[in-house]
């Protein structure tokens, strides 16, 4: 086996893994911590990609900065979606069947609307770091992967600090386990969930910018990520951010190996294999409790 090829496959996998971690962060919060099975998350990521695309093409703003600018809007969107979800399903105790169908409908409708607006052409953004790469000996670091990797790392550190150090963050970690205890602490569980869900959708804005930096985007690309993000989320142990990062890096490397040595058309099957294996062998994931 070619040594250089091996090293570069590992590097590409790790960088890809950093991106996957950012894509999964939102699901780790909503599914892992809040018990809201938001299968529409890839649709929100794609929405982030297209908004980044519009801002980048019309105003020439850097895609990552553009996505940070629209973060508040995504937070608000998340809060609204949660409010609807809460009133229509959680309050009536029907989240299992109808809540899932609701998010599936949102996923589908978003995709179709994007399809109607943008068609099936591939869209991409412009930024100085798309294209060149830094080499270190035999190792190649493509900047279009390295930049999202670094920003994603910053985002994870910030999220982890927020969740473990602030009062609201701790309340988020507690809300799905014991909402009654939160009430006794004079905290409204619904408000906490709304905030947390808003944050989870806000991460989709950044993840969307990463996605369109890494690859050109069409409306149906979101579906490819459903398997991946849930595989990572489950493998990492639901609701554990460090677990999510480890699982994402692992999946990135395995996928990169598969693509390098077997061909890229097999890569989508990897995540499903991992998902099934995890569910069959260790459903609590790597760092799950």
């Amino acid at each position: 086996m070619d040594f250089d090829l091996l090293v570069n496959a590992i590097i590409a996998g790790l960088l890809l893994g950093g991106f996957y971690a950012a894509v999964t962060a939102g699901i780790s919060i909503s599914f892992g911590m809040l018990d809201i099975v938001n299968i529409a998350h890839p649709a929100f990521i794609l929405l982030g990609s297209y908004i980044t695309y519009i801002v980048n093409v019309s105003l020439g703003i850097d895609p990552i900065i553009a996505s940070i600018l629209v973060l508040p809007a995504f937070y608000a969107l998340g809060a609204v979606v949660y409010q609807v979800y809460y009133l229509a399903f959680e309050k009536r105790g029907q989240e299992a069947l109808r809540g899932l169908a609701f998010f599936f409908g949102v996923l589908f409708v978003t995709e179709v609307i994007l399809l109607l607006l943008f068609g099936v052409d591939y869209r991409s953004v412009n930024a100085p770091y798309i294209g060149p790469s830094v080499s270190l000996g035999a190792m190649e670091f493509p900047l279009r992967l390295l930049v999202p990797f670094l920003v994603s790392a910053v985002m994870f550190v910030a999220l982890q600090i927020f969740l473990s150090r602030t009062f609201i963050g701790r309340a988020v970690m507690a809300v799905s386990q014991d909402p009654m205890a939160l009430r006794l602490m004079a905290v409204d569980p619904t408000r906490i969930k709304r905030i947390a869900f808003g944050i989870s959708i806000a991460t989709a804005s950044l993840a969307g910018a990463f996605l369109i930096i890494i690859q050109p985007v069409i409306p149906s690309v979101g579906r490819d990520y459903i398997g991946r993000i849930f595989a990572i989320c489950v493998l990492g142990g639901l609701g554990s951010l460090p677990g999510t990062v480890i699982a994402a890096l692992l999946l990135g490397v395995i996928e990169s190996f598969t693509a390098t040595f077997y061909g890229p058309s097999w890569a989508p099957a990897v995540s499903f294999g991992i998902l099934l294996l995890t569910l069959a062998v260790r459903p609590s994931g790597l760092l799950g409790r």
């Binding site: 599914f31 099975v37 299968i39 299992a96 849930f230 058309s265 097999w266 989508p268 569910l279």
Partner: peptide
């Protein structure tokens, strides 16, 4: 129950991958 739903979601992608190859 959720895990079954997610698995079926991913199943579609994987079987499609198999057929494409």
């Amino acid at each position: 129950g959720v895990f079954f739903a997610i698995a079926t979601l991913a199943l579609a992608v994987v079987i499609e991958t198999l057929v494409v190859n």
